[in-house]
Simulated assay, not measured.
Amino acid sequence: MMKSGILLIIMMISTLGIYSFNNYNADDAKTSFASFYHDKFNGRKTASGDLFSNSKMTAANRTLPFGTMLKVTNLRTGKSVVVEVNDRGPFHSSRALDLSKAAFKAIGNPSRGTMPVEYEIIDND
């Protein structure tokens, strides 16, 4: 009986956590880390069906709807770029975004691999 009660509590916390994570408000800015795609993904289909190109201003996020426009700001430099979410990922818990190489280069140094960012929804189709 005690095990099922603990399991129920864990399931409730998990469900509430997922709900709050998916509850985006366009006025809320989020902070996390971003990385960029390897060139090997050029020409492959993204989760949205688009062909990926490291020269376009696009991003991957685990939960935001495809077509969501984000303003991404590098917290080290203050530089910003606007990207469109067209893929799922990154599949690393410490990062919220994978940027195309063009978007990453526009605001950061690719030799670092990741950067701290703030991102906010600016348009949601």
Rank of each mutant, 00 (worst) to 15 (best):
G43L: 09
L99W: 07
M69Q: 14
M69L: 14
R95P: 01
R112L: 11
M57P: 15
T77Y: 03
S80W: 02
S55A: 11
L64W: 02
D98C: 08
N74A: 10
S53E: 10
M69A: 10
K40I: 14
I107W: 01
N42A: 09
A102C: 12
S93Y: 13
L51Q: 12
G89A: 11
F41C: 09
R112M: 07
K56F: 09
A60Y: 12
R112T: 05
V85R: 07
Y37L: 07
V82T: 15
T68G: 04
F91Y: 08
F52K: 09
L99E: 07
L97M: 09
H92R: 11
F41G: 13
L97H: 01
N109A: 07
G49W: 13
S94Y: 08
G49H: 14
R88W: 13
I107S: 01
K101N: 10
E84Q: 14
T46Y: 14
R76S: 15
T68K: 06
H92Y: 07
V83P: 05
N54H: 03
I107L: 08
N86S: 05
T58Y: 07
L70E: 00
A102E: 10
F91P: 01
T77Q: 02
N61F: 08
A106V: 00
A96V: 04
G108A: 07
F91R: 05
E84K: 15
A47G: 15
P65M: 00
L70Y: 00
P90D: 05
K71N: 13
S55V: 04
N61K: 08
G89Y: 11
L99K: 06
S93C: 07
A103K: 02
L64I: 02
V81P: 02
P65T: 01
D98T: 10
P90T: 04
A60E: 11
S94F: 12
P90M: 07
R76C: 05
H38I: 06
P110G: 03
A96H: 06
L51Y: 13
S55Y: 09
P110Y: 03
S111K: 14
V82Q: 12
A102L: 07
M69K: 15
T63C: 11
K105N: 06
H92W: 02
R112C: 07
N86G: 10
P90K: 10
G89F: 15
T63R: 11
S80V: 00
K45T: 13
T68I: 01
N42R: 10
K71M: 10
K79M: 04
G108F: 00
G89W: 14
T58N: 02
T58D: 08
N54M: 05
F41S: 13
A60M: 11
V72Q: 03
G108L: 00
F66E: 02
K56P: 04
G67R: 02
R95D: 02
V81F: 01
Y37T: 00
T58R: 12
R112F: 03
F41Y: 15
D87S: 12
S48H: 09
N86M: 04
K71S: 11
V82I: 14
A103I: 04
F41E: 11
L70S: 03
F91C: 06
P65L: 01
P110R: 02
G78T: 03
S80A: 05
G108Q: 01
S94K: 09
A103E: 04
L99T: 03
N86P: 09
N54Y: 10
A96K: 05
G67H: 03
L97G: 03
S111Y: 09
E84S: 08
G67W: 06
T58I: 14
A47T: 15
R88P: 08
G49T: 11
G113Y: 00
S93E: 15
V83C: 02
